[in-house]
Computed example of a mutant assay.
Amino acid sequence: IQGRDLHVCVWDLSEDRRTVTDSLLTGSVGFCQCSLLETRPGDALLAHPTENMEEVSVVEVKSWTPVCTLKPDSKLGMLMCMKMWQADSGPVLCAGYEDGSLVLWDVSHRRPFSCLKAHPEPVMCLDIDVCKQKGISGSSEKILQSWTLDNQQNLQMHDSVQMTNPGVSQLRIRVDGKIFATAGWDNIIRVFGWKKLKPLAVLQHHTDMVNSVAFSDHQDPPQRLLAAGSKDQRISVWSIYSES
């Protein structure tokens, strides 16, 4: 768990225990959340922001052994968000920056694959559909921008959709690749079709900015849920399953 105390903590939740077993001082006071990647059962990599606001550090979780540090050669501003996943060639990380750029990093070789100016404003959030090699990002503007990866790992603009009000804190693609949800600065959760970015639902419950959204990983579609956390100190849980 990443906290405002500049630490990432590892918790033991087995057998009803709730204890911190280890922690890592990141030194970061920025907005960017960490990204965790399980490389094989029992082993994982953690990408986290650092005291240097433009930098990503990747470490092994068990030992906190540094793997690499990723920093753009050009000035892209503060690191805002990131997502790490396992590709055929090894771990890959996509990072969003303050100037609206996305950089796709080759973690194993500590170098960028490609860079894309996706937004005119800071990239606030992003997610990737690894199976489709397609991702989406949001910013402080009204536009959600989707992008694709080609066989050479080049980022390319794909499609976009305009929202009613500006500002997205977070977005998540559901594991089945059919829909995605956004956490809006206007207190609203929005659900879109992933294939064509078609707006599907507007969920109104919160009285302040929605900060996060997450889908459950139930295998049975009727059991899948959407949860959202808000600045109003409430968590809402939604059943949005439809057979049609």
Results as ranks from 00 to 15, higher is better:
V20I: 12
S63M: 05
R111H: 05
S212E: 07
I179V: 15
T69W: 00
W105C: 04
P91E: 00
L116F: 14
T69N: 11
R190W: 06
R190A: 03
D16S: 12
L36E: 04
K134F: 03
C68A: 12
A183E: 06
V213L: 03
S28E: 09
L25C: 10
L36Q: 06
L24C: 13
S160F: 09
G77S: 05
V8P: 04
K132P: 02
C9D: 11
S216L: 05
T164W: 07
D208E: 15
D129G: 11
R40C: 03
M157R: 12
T207V: 07
R111E: 09
K178L: 15
E54Q: 08
W64I: 02
A201C: 15
V237M: 06
W105R: 11
E121P: 01
R224I: 12
V191C: 08
N211Q: 15
G42I: 02
R190E: 05
V61P: 05
E243Y: 09
M78R: 14
E60I: 10
S28H: 07
W147D: 06
D208G: 13
R111T: 13
M124G: 01
I188F: 01
Q153C: 09
K231W: 09
Q33T: 12
D127H: 01
K142W: 05
A44K: 03
Q223K: 15
S57R: 09
L104I: 11
V130M: 07
H158Q: 12
Q204S: 11
E51G: 09
S212L: 05
E60M: 10
N52W: 03
L225Y: 03
Q153M: 09
H119V: 03
V210C: 10
D150H: 14
D16K: 05
Q86W: 06
V103R: 13
C81L: 04
N154E: 13
T19I: 14
W85T: 00
L149G: 01
N211C: 15
K71G: 05
V10W: 14
L197S: 07
K83R: 10
L104K: 01
L203H: 11
D150K: 01
R110D: 11
H48N: 13
L6A: 14
D159I: 05
L25N: 05
K75A: 03
L102A: 07
T207W: 11
G167E: 14
C125I: 00
V20M: 14
P199H: 06
T39M: 05
A201N: 15
D99T: 06
K231N: 13
M163E: 06
V29S: 14
L126K: 00
T164S: 03
D127W: 00
Y241I: 12
P120D: 06
W105K: 10
V56N: 02
F192E: 01
W238C: 02
V161A: 08
T148L: 13
Q2P: 04
M80K: 04
R40W: 08
S14M: 08
V59H: 02
V107D: 01
M163V: 01
R110A: 13
Q145L: 07
P41C: 03
Q204E: 14
R18S: 10
N165R: 14
G30F: 01
T207L: 10
S101E: 02
D208K: 15
D129P: 04
N211L: 11
S239T: 08
D5Q: 02
T19F: 09
E141Q: 10
P122G: 11
L126T: 00
C32M: 07
K198T: 11
